[in-house]
Amino acid sequence: MDPKVKVELYRTMVLIRSFEETILQHYHADKSPAWDIGAGLIPGEMHLSAGQEPVAAGICANLTASDAITATHRPHHLAIAHGVRMEALAAEIFGRETGLGKGRGGHMHLFDPGTHFSCSGIIAEGLPPALGQAFAFQRRGLPNVVVAVTGEGAANQGAFHESLNLAALWKLPVVFVVEDNDWAISVPRTASTAVPSNAARAAAYGIPGERVENNDVEEVWRVAKGAIKRARSGDGPTLIEVHTVRLWGHFEGDAQAYRNDLEEAKAHDPIEVYAGLLAREGVLDTKGAAKIKEECTKEVASAIDFAKTSPLPDPAGALQYVFA
C-alpha cells in the first residue's frame, strides 16, 4: 500500500476526530448546570462518530465528488471524508443561514448536491433513495457509484432487505456498508441480530458480502476499493460490514450505563492504533503526526469560527423551501 495513501487515511481520521471533539465541546459548553437538550449554541440531538473514523476514511479515499454517499443519523465522519465543505457542515450544525440546509435540516439531515452527499435520520430509510441515485447514474451511462451506509441495527429493518434485493436484481452501482458498532442505542447486536455477521446476509441476494474486523482502516480501504470497482464496472452491489466502535454515547447526554465494553473500546482507539502502526512502519513519526493534528485543528477552528459568526436564519423565512 502506498505510504501516501496511509498518511492520507490517517489525516482524514484525525480531521474527523478534531471536528467531533470541537462539536462535543461546544455542544456541552452551554448546557449546564441544568441540562437542557434544546439549549445552547448547538441545540437538539447530537450523534457523534468518534471511533468510526476508519469506515469513513477507508471508503471515501476510493470515491470522487461525482460519486454519491448516503449516511445515517450519525453522519459527520462520512461528510468530512467525502469532502463536504466543512464550513457549511459546521454552520448547519449551529443552525445558521450559511449551513448546508440554511438551518432547516440540522445535523441528521445534511444534503450537499455538489458532492452528492445526503443522510437520513430514519434507520435504514436512507438506502432506498441511494438506489435512486444509482439508478440515475446507471441509466445515464455514468461511471459513478453510490455508497449507502447504515448501522448494524438497521440490518433488521425491511427497507434494508428491500433495497438489497432491488439493487441486486437491477445490478445497481451501489456499495452497501454496515457500520457495526455493536450497539443499537442500548441494545447489543447479540440481542438484536440472528446471524453473527450481517455480511452473511448478502448470500440471500446473490451478491458478495465481506466483513472487516478490528476497525482496520487499511482493510476497509482495500475491501471498499474492490467493491467500488465492481459497482463501477457494472457488476452490481456488494455488502460490506465493518466491525467498528462507538467511543462516545449514542447521543450526547447518553450516560452509557448499559455498556460493559467501554474501557476495552477506549483501549483500542483506532486513531491511536493506526498512529502506532504507521510509526512502527516508519511511515509517520511522532513529529509528523503532531503536524497533521495541528493542521487539522486549525482547519476545524476556522470552520467553527465561520459557523459561529454566521447569521441565524430570519424567523420571517420559517415558511420558505416547503415547495420549489
Partner: peptide
Amino acid sequence: DTPISETAFLGLATGAATEGM
C-alpha cells in the same frame, strides 16, 4: 415493473429525482 417493495421503489424514485430524473 418493480418487485412488491414499495419502500425500495418509492425511495428509488426520490433518489432518482434528486439526481435530475
